[in-house]
């Protein structure tokens, strides 16, 4: 059986870290920046140990649109893992040392306006009316 916010059976060992699987980039970044390095490191270590199998699972899944709910949760957890890895591997800190506060640097791609964007259709460049 698959409850909401469960992981694929093979990755159930990561269930204690499901509070990282938050739905938006902003929420995941805030989670990272309000966690201790110990908490971030624990999440990072546990997920890194399984990362090859997880990537394998994602590769076989193909499209997120048709993926089952546990796989979608696993993917969201992997997005939090990508964010957390920056703290462990690069910043050595939950926040960006000497950086702008995260809430000043706003992701336009998460706004309602951006979500209304027409679907992109690749095309050669054309000249306008000027």
């Amino acid at each position: 059986m698959t409850a909401i916010n469960s992981l694929p059976t093979a990755f159930e060992a990561l269930t204690p870290f499901l509070d990282w699987a938050l739905p938006t980039e902003t929420l995941r970044r805030r989670k990272r920046e309000s966690s201790s390095m110990r908490e971030i490191q624990d999440f990072y270590d546990a997920t890194l140990a399984r990362v090859a199998e997880i990537m394998d699972h994602l590769r076989k899944t193909g499209s997120l649109a048709t993926a089952d709910e546990p796989t979608r949760t696993l993917y969201t957890l992997m997005l939090a893992f990508a964010d957390a890895s920056l703290s462990v591997e690069l910043h050595k800190s939950p926040i960006v040392p000497d950086g702008l506060p995260g809430d000043v640097w706003k992701p336009e791609h998460e706004t309602a306006g951006w979500l209304q964007k027409p679907a992109i259709v690749m095309q050669p460049a054309k000249t306008g009316n000027a």
Binding site: R29, L58, S63
Partner: peptide, 30 residues
């Protein structure tokens, strides 16, 4: 180039790139 809808691995890497650019630019901003 747009990420292919059926390539979840590439989508994950594109998200990684997003967050790493975000944090790099926050260094510049300050």
């Amino acid at each position: 180039p747009p990420v292919k809808a059926d390539d979840l691995e590439a989508a994950w890497a594109a998200e990684y790139m997003k967050y790493s650019l975000r944090d790099l630019w926050r260094e510049d901003g300050n």
